[in-house]
Design a protein around this nucleic acid. Sequence first.
DNA 1: GTTAGCACTCATCGAAACGGAGTGCTAACG
DNA 2: CGTTAGCACTCCGTTTCGATGAGTGCTAAC
Lengths: 341, 341
Amino acid sequence: MLSERQRMILNAIVDDYIRSAEPVGSRSISKRGDVTFSPATIRNEMADLEELGLLEQPHTSAGRIPSIKGYRYYVDHLVTLNGVGDQDAKKLRTFFAEKMNHWEGVIEHAATILSQLTNYTSIVLGPEMFSTTLKHFQLVPINDVSAVAIIVANTGHVEHRTITIPEGIDMDDMAKIVNMLNDKLAGVPFYKVKSVLHSEIAKELSRYVEQCEGILTLLEETITEEQEPKVYLSGASNMLTQPEFKDVDKAKNILGMLEETQLLMQLFQSNPGGIQVKIGTENALEAINHCSLITATYSYDGQSLGTIGILGPTRMEYGKVISLLNYLSKDIANLMSRWYK
Amino acid sequence: MLSERQRMILNAIVDDYIRSAEPVGSRSISKRGDVTFSPATIRNEMADLEELGLLEQPHTSAGRIPSIKGYRYYVDHLVTLNGVGDQDAKKLRTFFAEKMNHWEGVIEHAATILSQLTNYTSIVLGPEMFSTTLKHFQLVPINDVSAVAIIVANTGHVEHRTITIPEGIDMDDMAKIVNMLNDKLAGVPFYKVKSVLHSEIAKELSRYVEQCEGILTLLEETITEEQEPKVYLSGASNMLTQPEFKDVDKAKNILGMLEETQLLMQLFQSNPGGIQVKIGTENALEAINHCSLITATYSYDGQSLGTIGILGPTRMEYGKVISLLNYLSKDIANLMSRWYK
DNA sequence: GTTAGCACTCATCGAAACGGAGTGCTAACG
DNA sequence: CGTTAGCACTCCGTTTCGATGAGTGCTAAC
């Protein structure tokens, strides 16, 4: 357990370091006003905090910087959420006032705004299909051999994919089957589509239509095909403004990772909902062991839809970012309700 | 007009510089084997080439580097297109062998492959709607107030957007109008949709349906709404591997620009078709005045569909990239035909 | 328990010195 | 007359070295 004074000092060090990116010395803390002790006293406390693993020294005779553990304590106990500034709130409001008519437009735009407001990199995972239900399924023929399958989810999210129709399949049969599928599958969650198809529909269908096997397999593949949620990235170049990445090699590591959608999705795994802060080595990926990732899930009607994340150096403005994510994820939820209620 | 020897020397300098990224001296050229003259002779020629504006000296007593004009001459007259290497060809072939069922999947994947093969940044502009025709238009209701509009182009490209239906509009009327639009608009190029709507359809429609005004405007907006072609970017972090961008600020400039879709589209304007090389300041944007951009258009059935581009430092492997783009753009065209013939 | 004083450490910065790659010029050569 | 060897000169990049200064840890006094 830390004493009140130790907490004040830790708080001061983290705040200072977040602002300046340079090791914080005892003198500068003593001069801050909110800590009224002499440099010598502060030095003693700092030595203690270092022994506890909350601070680190880059080298002897340098100031102290927070360790991962130090940041963790700061985030858990010390950080002050001063809400969203007037400037930022205004920007967000005008953002939501704009007319948006894609789902994707909103998400993508939200990513942009976030990276602008924070000067960090924002990563947004689009709606996750597996927690939503099928609303409507449709085939639009393009020519003799191909068609566009259109899949609408109850959230209003739309997917389309082009399929090639094998020879020897009758288009009328196809149409019948599609109709039936719509009857039976409307309202079924995506992850259940496969089993419902097999258990309920297959038998009934075989009565009406010849060679339904082939058609059904095709449609099943089409609907349940691996649907990676889309990842939107914005402000990746903001990483380069951080002094900790003035070394091109480090920067390249991170930017390279940001380009790999697969890895990004790994990052977002295991989200219990709400806001989560992962600091430095708490992150799964080694490439961002010098970064912190703050994530928030946005949801509609109690259903988690996707995830928003902000990636920055461990020396991140935790208070500001957390407030912002809080604000935004709630507003996105409201926006959804207004649309799809 | 350059003498044969001058061309040999220029060629040698550009090749060497592309490989090493360091000013090329007379000695090293003389030792290359393909130029059999002594360093002194080469120095004389180099002085001449510099006077012609084809070479530059970073400072006295350094070797020479090609100027923009030098690269231009190299690209126009000297570069050898040694085709696509076996390794690369194999990768491309397996790429196209994979089953792809989105349009977008192909384009996006092509961008990835390109950036991997070249180690530069690849930029791909998706199909341009304005040169294609409307194939099918459809509304799928989601609930009382919103619907998804689905727009299929003759190329198989699909767009969807969510629209909000104003109160007081009858869904049956809506359906009638949509039917009629499909009759009248199928085969009409997108850029003509607006005028056709006004000239031919408006009058005829008013006979059947009350208050068609509102509905029509809505649908018109939906179909003709600004449809930015999508931009796919891959390998942006490759920029950082180039020694010319070891300076973080320069790198940030370029990466920042790459994030702005608007700017990227500017870059691709005025594409006469075929392969085009823009070197350094020949590019419209100041941010990439130290880069070269090689673009190729891909087309289907004589119709230009989109653009592929490779962005790298002016010191770029022109021969390799041009060969690769040539190969790829043709293969994409073939792939399209196989699908949508 | 707190603070002043002091010796010590170590990164950073700038000046000076050094080495080397490359040039331009001149003169010799075939 | 074109080509080449030789040589003085330039200028960049690197290294070395000392000065500077911020910051610590310890001890002793308050």
